[in-house]
Amino acid sequence: MPEFNVNSGFLYAITAVVIVFVLAQSAFFLVRAARRAKALGITGATIRKTIFSSSLFSIAPAVGILLGVITLSKFLGLPLPWLRLSVLGAITYELPAATTTANAMGLSLSEAITDPSAYSAIAWVMTLGIIPGIFLVLFGLKKIQKGVVSLKGKDPKWGNIFMSSLFLGMISAFMGMLFADVRKGLPGLIPIAVALSSALIMAICGILIKKCRLAWLEQYALPLSMLGAMAAAIPITALMG
């Protein structure tokens, strides 16, 4: 029997296979979509800008995910959190999944697991808890998209309003969340202040794009607002925290 260790070479090997799979799938879809975009008359410059700005935008949230991997790694080692957060995972799910299972087994989260069957129990919960949505994508997406297409075809005006409403539903849920800690006084207002500074940077970018015709800025406005507001969060927290 191979000796169990949360950072064993075997676990790294499994992780590597999955990571390569994710990269391959992304590259496959990227190449096909870029080809189709060209056929639809989207310029190469727009495609390149989309690739570059989406990658740039992803860096800060990716570092946030990396912090999640580090948090879980004290308990689960590096490979499992790395793998779970690279495929279908989200720290908002993986952390409670790991902790509830650990609690059920009476394990402490502060030291690395030594019992392989406890480790596999956690791996199962982290996997099974997140899988139904992806089965729905596999078997139901075609029908869902047909519904969207027919909605747009029947009444284009309502179709557009419907789409915007979906976006705004998501955005308002997260906007509302900013107000969750308001009762805690000044420190509870930090998220609002940070969101406002992000909104302000975005508004300035918007003015520059329109008034100064800085069209290139359009692609970088979101990464800029986000990084600027994250940087602003440091003094804001120092002042209000």
């Binding site: 900013l178 998220p191 992000s198 507001a229 994250m230």
Partner: peptide
């Protein structure tokens, strides 16, 4: 503050 910075 990643999420507030993003959604703002």
């Amino acid at each position: 503050q990643i999420l507030p910075a993003l959604f703002g």
